[in-house]
């Protein structure tokens, strides 16, 4: 087990190094000279002196690999540089928006679990009936619906017509009222995936021999499903959390932006609009590190919970 964990951690390192290169090179992927574009004002192009001064101030006058190594060194020490726009520390902006994202993700996760687990169980128990069909169809709709469109349908119904909930915003430090619609938007799309997994996992458990034994000894169906099958079917629940995580982070990009929720997705979209490269570099790297660490935790706990796969892992 320990060997497995250390191997996984070792494998992460090159991936993160690669991510840092991708994040850093964002500035150079953009067409044009970043200094010139950033200093462009309505009065016209900036003077060459102003561009040079900006370059020196932001360290853009150094060779690229020097810039990269210096950036990497700073980042490892928690210093993500300063925003081109606000001139405030990037790390502060990232931490602040990540908190908002965490808050929203937590509530979305609850929405997702509350919707998906009962639906998945119902579909599996009522296998091959109209209920199963409806649940599966609902899940397919859930993964196919564009979340930005779903967001608007929710806003249209609950904010514009019924006037129950605010259209967008963070409210008083991110209160529940402002969180409901984005959390439903994010939660339902990940619920679709979870419900499908719950269904197939329970169906698989129900086809095992020990279920036949349990039924044969005359146990009521409730106990067969609830105690014997469900217990085993819930093992992939950790994977469910992992899958949700990817869904929530990816969905956060558009959803946060639409609802004006000041999370990391909103931060990235805004910094791209403003060409605020230090913020883009920092937040992409940050989100990747978080994503990788969380995936690692999910993998390790899955391996721990499911001894069957513990020794099968070759790679």
């Amino acid at each position: 087990m320990l060997a497995y964990i250390s191997k996984r951690i070792l494998l992460i390192m090159p991936a993160l190094l690669f991510v840092s290169i991708i994040s850093f090179s964002m500035v150079y992927l953009a067409p044009g000279d970043p200094a010139e574009i950033l200093l462009m004002s309505p009065e016209g192009s900036p003077s060459p002196e102003a561009i040079d001064a900006f370059r020196v101030r932001m360290g853009l006058d150094q060779p690229i690999y020097v810039q990269y190594l210096r950036w990497l060194d700073n980042v490892i020490h928690g210093d993500f540089g300063y925003s081109y726009m606000s001139e405030r520390p990037v790390a502060d902006a990232i931490m602040k928006s990540f908190k908002a994202t965490l808050k929203l993700s937590f509530v979305s996760m609850i929405v997702s679990i509350v919707v998906s687990i009962p639906l998945g169980i119902m579909a599996a128990v009522k296998h091959n009936t109209i209920i199963d069909d409806l649940c599966r169809f609902g899940a397919l709709i859930g993964v196919s619906i564009p979340n930005f469109w779903q967001a608007f349908l929710l806003i249209l119904l609950f904010s514009v017509y019924l006037d129950w909930l605010p259209v967008a915003g963070y409210g008083d430090g991110g209160d529940l009222k402002h969180m409901i619609l984005p959390a439903i938007t994010l939660g339902t799309s990940s619920a679709a995936v979870t419900a499908r997994l719950m269904r197939s996992s329970l169906l698989e458990a129900l086809s095992q021999d020990y279920i036949i034994t349990a039924r044969a000894k005359g146990l009521p169906e409730k106990i067969v499903i609830g105690k014997h099958a469900l217990k085993n079917a819930l093992i992939p629940v950790v994977t469910i959390l992992g899958l949700n995580l990817g869904f929530l982070l990816n969905g956060a990009v558009v959803t946060e932006w639409i609802f004006g929720w000041p999370g990391i997705g909103d931060l990235v979209v805004d910094s791209i609009y403003q060409r605020d490269y230090t913020v883009i570099q920092g937040s992409i790297l940050f989100i990747a590190v978080i994503f990788v660490i969380l995936n690692l935790i999910v993998d390790i706990s899955y391996t721990y919970l499911n001894p069957r796969i513990r020794y099968e892992i070759v790679d």
């Binding site: 994040s23 982070l249 969905g251 979209v269 994503f291």
Partner: peptide
């Protein structure tokens, strides 16, 4: 490395 960045963030960036 590519999988380490959540897909929508990578595509967006």
């Amino acid at each position: 490395g590519f999988l380490a960045i959540p897909s929508m963030f990578l595509a967006l960036a």
